[in-house]
Nucleic acid binder design. Structure first.
Lengths: 207, 207
DNA sequence: AATAAATTGACCACATTGGTCATTTTTGGT
DNA sequence: ACCAAAAATGACCAATGTGGTCAATTTATT
């Protein structure tokens, strides 16, 4: 049972279907997301979709579980012994980048689930998300060496600025990511410059 | 003709209708936005809505024009003689805050129009937006004194970081804005701290 | 009280919905 | 080359929702 039908598909097809579905759910929310549009975009037939998944709700929660699994993998890969904030963030940013290439809408999808209002899924979402996501997120800043910060810098606010900069940068680069294949290098170089600027701003100068 | 029916309504009612409509359009996009949901949220009858506006498309473009008018007012108020970037941004941030209180979704709505894919409105949107918005936006950074920047700081990247921080801060404070009435003071104080941090980061120390 | 203006919601033809299932196509073993 | 099993298809369905109308009712003005 479970999702064996879907999992025995060629993985390219699986990805195509998942991305098409995530796109719809992000764009329209759970209720208004159209299975007709999903199958059109994924280039499969209606019958197939409902052969892989019992119904729309099943598909939706499969996507959530899959996304959470992937996010967990990211945070599991974090090298917790690296105590420098900026190097830690570089790690995560790089892993995220790889994921964005395969599932461009994964993070948007996860975000959209938390704004979901539909009573048919809201409660279930809340109970799933509550535990997992916060635990993972806290690992990002675990064991960071805050003594490197200048005394007149509020670390919490510095983290916010860093976060917002990361989000903004990622958003701005999204189209470029999709078009290029191995855009990694020059992108990371640009990101490095932003990091350098903020490092100089927040860290003690240690020459 | 035009929108005289709508404009002769009590302004509270006008605002209620516009916010309800913007909410739908942001949430669901032009095509899937439901006029039924709009009238329910705005607490008016279906007949009234179509008395004020000829049809859904009319309503949509009325909202766009109105939003653009408001945005233009913001940028018209910018004191162009203030050459310090941070003070300039403070001005704009403060004006924006006032608008967010009356129309919490105005900026989200404008953003959503530019992502709109529906062929029924896409071209028209493009032709309206093209001119106006970019012109206004460029005024924000007009006549700024870039000589205050440290030599090793790339001004363009600094502007990006500032922008992303502003967006992130605004997003984070959105709920608080709605609930409080005159939240302005403590909010601006917190924002000031972020500004101070980034100022110290990007400006020459002039002690 | 009479008239005009504003508001209502039942109603319409039509489009789209999530989901089914008989039929066709593809697959893999012999 | 053949066939049976598996996979994929899309016409089809009842149900719901759509943007928009308009005769009837309520409210405001004279």
């Amino acid at each position: 049972m479970s999702y064996s039908k879907f999992h025995s598909l060629p993985s390219k097809k699986q990805v195509r279907i998942m991305n098409a579905a995530m796109k719809q759910f992000v764009q329209s929310g759970y209720e208004k997301a159209s299975t007709n549009e999903i199958v059109k975009e994924a280039q499969i037939s209606k019958g197939s979709l409902f052969n892989y998944f019992h119904n729309k709700k099943d598909l939706y929660f499969y996507l959530i579980e899959n996304a959470l699994k992937i996010v967990d993998v990211i945070f599991a890969e974090v090298d917790i012994t690296e105590r420098d904030l900026f190097k830690r963030l570089s790690q995560i940013g790089f892993i995220k980048l790889k994921i964005q290439q395969k599932y461009p809408l994964l993070f948007d999808f996860l975000k959209s689930t938390q704004l979901e209002q539909s009573p048919e899924v809201k409660n279930e979402i809340d109970s799933i998300m509550m535990n997992i996501l916060n635990v993972s997120l806290s690992r990002v800043y675990e064991n960071i060496d805050f003594s490197k910060f200048r005394d007149d810098v509020n670390p919490e606010k510095a983290l916010h600025i860093l976060n917002w900069t990361m989000l903004g940068f990622a958003e701005a680069q999204k189209e470029k990511i999709k078009s290029f294949e191995s855009v990694g290098i020059e992108l990371m170089a640009e990101w490095d410059e932003y990091m350098k600027m903020l490092k100089r701003a927040f860290y003690k100068e240690e020459e």
